[in-house]
Design a protein around this nucleic acid. Structure first.
Lengths: 227, 227
DNA sequence: GGGATGTTTCGGAATCGGCCGAAGCGTCGG
DNA sequence: CCGACGCTTCGGCCGATTCCGAAACATCCC
């Protein structure tokens, strides 16, 4: 009944392979149907249903009914951040440094709750830091004056949201380096999507960079994307 | 074998009540012996031993032998941040807003890996902000000129550490508000400890404010501590 | 050396939790 | 109205995990 007990309840939700797979898929912030999540977890629908109910009960997920579909998504930004933190620790284990081909596309570019991650996001963060537009330390980040000027020239809305870090470093689990999160990270992702530089794959967190995106990201951010 | 699977392994470590209790205790960054952790978890030593071995294996804990004692502590700052994120989510569940008397002392004052948390830490952060010594925005924190003068008068070392934010807001899971983290947060905790204003309870994250500490914190920081 | 203490390993019992088959409920389309 | 579809609930099986008693190992103190 104490707070510690509640910690165990929350943690055990992510502590099962089927649920971990579902949570991984939901980490991009989108909502998925029970059927999609059941396929991603590799279990029968009735098994997935039980898992999903449990996660809703623990406060990790919320559900919205739409016709005969039920859409599940992460309950809050905090849940996404919790999962990010867990991915960082999980990927740090040297005994698990094996990545299959399925992971390769995800290592290249993916969404991380509400911002971009993978080599694409790290490239952008690196260039912004190198250009003096950004400072990313281990537990905090900051946009410089030149950074504000540069980013607003790209048409990005630089207004902070209440109760939300504007510029936050997020340790990339696949690359073990920092990329950009927080409100600014969200704005960049939204801007890339809106301009057609990237497209989200229908049932995965993987992101595909379009031909236009490749050119623009190279010209504006100086990031050269291979493969 | 994929990264998702590793997530489940890490998460399941915290997903057992006994292990969750141990991790909660270890969250203040100190090292504890297997015996202390077994008592905190409420299980027999031989049971705790198995749990601890499993967490070391998963990369959450590291162990150091000292004589006939074995001291366990969190393996990295990232593990602490992961647990902090899990506590935020766990405490957010409205169905678990019940706090027993044991939690009351922890809500009042405790350590959060390397800085102070709870009502004490929030009171100090509030007063520093109100006095214009500190700006704690959602996009990070900053110490003002008057703040630097004030804090150095208190004998605090204001030199920044490389790769570490100097002043960072940290969401308090028990109060749902920001307190002070980063290098400055660490310095304040160290200073309070060194001056005998607070003492760490031997086997818990709870911090006790001494009579001297109560007076000093009231006189210098203007925080009136009840209870 | 001998006894006490702290910690780990082993083995067996009980329990917990995941999984799927079968069945029930609501929604959509014709 | 009927069948198809998506999802959930129920019941039983089974493997995994937790727990502790007993015993072994290491270290400290006398």
């Amino acid at each position: 009944m104490s707070a510690h007990n509640q910690l165990a309840i929350v943690a055990s939700c992510a502590g099962d392979p089927a649920r971990a797979n579902m949570l991984s898929m939901l980490m991009d912030g989108r909502a998925f149907t029970a059927g999609e999540l059941s396929a991603a977890a590799g279990v029968m629908p009735q098994t997935a249903s039980g898992h999903l109910a449990r996660m809703v009960d623990a406060g990790l997920l919320v559900v919205a009914q739409q016709g005969r579909h039920r859409y599940y998504r992460l309950a809050s930004l905090q849940v996404g951040q919790m999962l990010e933190g867990m991915m960082v620790v999980a990927a740090a284990d040297p005994s698990a440094r094996r990545f299959g081909p399925r992971d390769q596309a995800m290592r290249f570019a993916r969404t991380c709750y509400d911002h971009l991650a993978g080599q694409l996001a790290i490239g952008i963060a690196d260039r912004l830091v190198a250009a003096g537009h950004l400072v990313l330390a281990d537990d905090g980040g900051e946009v410089t004056a030149s950074g504000r000027a540069f980013l607003s020239r790209q048409g990005l809305d630089l207004h902070a949201q209440p109760h939300r870090a504007f510029c936050r470093p997020c340790l990339d689990w696949s690359e073990r380096r920092y990329h950009l999160a927080g409100t600014l990270g969200t704005r960049i992702k939204e801007s890339f999507l809106a301009q057609g530089w990237i497209v989200q794959k229908p049932a995965s967190r993987t992101v595909e960079v379009t031909r236009l995106g490749r050119r623009k990201i190279r010209d504006i951010y100086g990031v050269r994307l291979e493969s």
